[in-house]
C-alpha cells in the first residue's frame, strides 16, 4: 500500500500486532518453559518456571515403559521412505501428464482433481477393513505395519503433488526436450537429463511439504498402528496424554517439544522455499 501511517493508526496497528503475537507465541513459550520446569504436574506449570531442570527430558528418554526414541525413529523412517516414494512417483507421473498426448488423459486429470479435493479419509472404515484383508495375504502391508502406512501416505499424496509438479513442468518450454529427442535421446533421457534438473526447486518443495505432512500425521497413523513399538511419535504423544495428562505434564511437554523440533528446524532452514511454493501453487490456480 502506498498510504502513510498516521500516528494513531500506527499505535492501533502495533496494539493489534501485540495481541496477535501474544496469541501466537505464548503457547509456544509456555510449552518450552514448562518442559524445563521442575514441577511435574500441570498445576505447577508456569510461564516462568521457578526451578529449571532437564529432568523431564531425561525421564522421557530413559523411561522403560515409554518407547519415545523408538517412536521418533519410526516417524523418521516412515516419513523419509514416504517422501522418496512420493517424489519419485509424482515426478514421473507429472512428466507423462505434461508431455505425452494419449487417450484418457483428460479422464485421468479429472480423477486426480477429484481425489485432490475429496477427503479420502472419510472412507476410513473401508480403508481399515481393506488393510486388514491385505494383511492376510501380504503381512508387511497390513494393519499395524509401517509398509501399509507408507502405502496409504504415498497414494494419498499423489493428487496434490501431481497437480503442483505438472503445473510447473507445463511452464517449461517443450522445445527443450524435443531438441534433445531429435538428437536421439529417449523420452526417459529427456526427462531425466533435461527436465528433472530444471524442476528441482519444486521437487525440493514437495519433498519438504510431504515430510511435514507425513511426520505430523495423526489420523491415519492412529487408525492403522496399534503396537507400542510400531506407533509414530504423534500417536505416541496422543496415547501418552490419554493416560496421564495432568500428573505427568512435565514429561508430556518434553515429548511434544522434541517431537516438534525436526519439522520446526526443517521449516526454519527452508522457509523461503516452502512459502513461495505454497504461494505459487495458490496464485497460479
Amino acid at each position: 500500500m502506498v498510504t502513510h501511517n498516521k500516528p494513531l493508526t500506527l499505535v492501533l496497528k502495533y496494539l493489534l500486532a501485540l495481541v496477535l503475537i501474544i496469541f501466537a507465541v505464548v503457547p509456544f513459550l509456555w510449552i518450552i518453559s514448562t518442559s524445563f520446569n521442575q514441577a511435574k504436574s500441570l498445576l505447577g506449570a508456569r510461564l516462568i518456571p521457578e526451578h529449571l531442570t532437564l529432568g523431564n527430558y531425561s525421564e522421557l528418554l530413559t523411561s522403560q515403559t515409554l518407547n519415545f526414541s523408538l517412536w521418533m525413529w519410526n516417524s523418521f523412517k516412515i516419513s523419509t521412505i514416504s517422501v522418496f516414494l512420493i517424489v519419485a512417483i509424482t515426478v514421473i507421473s507429472s512428466y507423462a501428464l505434461s508431455r505425452f498426448r494419449f487417450k484418457g488423459k483428460r479422464a485421468i486429470m479429472l480423477i486426480i482433481m477429484i481425489l485432490n479435493v475429496f477427503p479420502g479419509i472419510l472412507a476410513m472404515i473401508a480403508l481399515y477393513s481393506l488393510m486388514q484383508q491385505i494383511g492376510g495375504y501380504v503381512p508387511w502391508l497390513g494393519l499395524n505395519t509401517h509398509g501399509g502406512l507408507i502405502a496409504i501416505y504415498v497414494s494419498g499424496a499423489m493428487s496434490i503433488n501431481v497437480l503442483m509438479v505438472k503445473g510447473y513442468i507445463d511452464t517449461i518450454p517443450i522445445d527443450l526436450d524435443e531438441s534433445a529427442m531429435i538428437e536421439g535421446a529417449t523420452s526417459w533421457q529427456a526427462f531425466w537429463k533435461i527436465v528433472f534438473p530444471v524442476i528441482r526447486p519444486i521437487v525440493i518443495t514437495i519433498a519438504i511439504l510431504a515430510f511435514m505432512a507425513t511426520y505430523g500425521d495423526f489420523i491415519i497413523a492412529n487408525l492403522l498402528l496399534k503396537g507400542n513399538d510400531q506407533i509414530t511419535v504423534m500417536v505416541g504423544i496422543f496415547q501418552f496424554t490419554q493416560q496421564r495428562f495432568d500428573t505427568n505434564w512435565g514429561i508430556v511437554t518434553a515429548g511434544t517439544v522434541i517431537a516438534a523440533i525436526p519439522v520446526a528446524v526443517l521449516f526454519f532452514f527452508t522457509q523461503k522455499q516452502i512459502l513461495s511454493g505454497i504461494i505459487s501453487g495458490a496464485v497460479k490456480e
Partner: peptide, 13 residues
C-alpha cells in the same frame, strides 16, 4: 511449522 497434534496438546494444557 509446529505439528498440529502438538499444538492441540499445548492448548489442552
Amino acid at each position: 511449522p509446529i505439528p498440529v497434534l502438538v499444538s492441540i496438546m499445548i492448548w489442552r494444557g
